[in-house]
Write a protein that binds this DNA or RNA. Structure first.
Lengths: 183, 183
DNA sequence: GTGCAAAAGCTAATGCTTTGCTTTAGTTGA
DNA sequence: TCAACTAAAGCAAAGCATTAGCTTTTGCAC
């Protein structure tokens, strides 16, 4: 039986908060389950039972931090919207903390559900941009096309080839997609 | 000072072998540093000092296993070569063991060098295919284009969206790239 | 308000990890 | 070839994360 309210929710909130605080204060490396438990006012066994281990807990917290806080900015046309979004996405994800969150999210994720959530966040944002373009009467590519041609190359490089990544590369991906005759 | 030969090399080899044997015998989850050390005929502190922790050791071993063993098959033309390679790449990487190796390689990789090596392996294979095509007089895209339009989308889905991945998707990516007027 | 069950607390035992010191063995130069 | 030097491995004890069994709390349903 799932118990979303009451003590369970309080414990979850205080543990997440403890992770964020300690991460900010002492850095990612210093985190341990007993340390987080002490800050959260909880016994370590509670964390082990609910999350399994430190990695799964960090994965949960990382996914929360990767959730976009606002819909993408409306700049008036599809190309501008997509380019601005791609640049911002790259900037956030390629930054040292962004990279750490992505790694953590993938890391403690036995069934892939957290990774799926990250991908869904990006798809949602893209979908908003594309829907706006369609409302304006613009021709717009499919969400999947944007995922394959913009999001995937950015994420691949962030994970596998940390060097030579800049805003121009993101713009080029968007331009390449929008220039394709077959959208 | 680096000492590539002698005892260091023997220890490295026997530790790697121990990881592979135990992984096959008892499964990935059962691995611990003391267990690997015992099998390798080494003290645990040796492993901790050389690799830091279990994850970094597994990352090293995983990269070895992701190294391609043979150059890609020559089927006579670029489209066939690339499609066959993409399908095989997907099959290997998306399989449960393949996914485990990718995760391990990314996971215990503080500086990103192991991830870079994985990416370089794929780029090398692609490069062989493209060079063969050029030799035949075919027009061929740049390696970077193949990485962005074929490898990246495959890897992105393997990592972030494990469902809905099949050979047809890989073929579609290759076809989409080769159909592009601007290569 | 009573009963049930999920989740948290507590505690002791286990064993992974770290660390300081010693020993082994590969490398260099006479 | 031998001796000095030093990187790397062995050893052992201390520290601490993790697990597991049991008890207690607390949310939920009747």
């Amino acid at each position: 039986m799932v118990r979303p309210g009451g003590r369970s929710a309080r414990v979850q909130a205080s543990v997440h908060a403890a992770v964020r605080e300690l991460e900010a204060e002492q850095g990612r490396e210093a985190l341990t389950v007993p340390l987080v438990a002490a800050r959260a006012g909880v016994t370590p066994s509670t964390i082990y039972r609910r999350w399994g281990d430190l990695q799964e807990l960090l994965s949960d917290v990382a996914v929360e931090r990767l959730r976009p806080e606002a819909p993408p900015e409306d700049r008036g046309d599809l190309a501008s919207d997509l380019q601005a979004w791609a640049e911002q996405f790259l900037e956030e994800m390629a930054s040292p903390p962004g990279r750490a969150y992505i790694r953590d999210a993938l890391l403690g994720d036995p069934d892939g559900s957290n990774a799926g959530r990250c991908s869904a966040y990006a798809a949602e944002q893209v979908d908003v941009i594309l829907a706006r373009a369609v409302d304006r009467g613009e021709r717009a590519p499919e969400v999947e096309a944007v995922m394959d041609r913009v999001v995937a190359p950015l994420m691949y490089r962030i994970l596998f080839r940390p060097d030579r990544l800049d805003a121009a590369f993101a713009r080029g991906l968007v331009a390449g997609l929008l220039d394709s005759p077959v959208r």
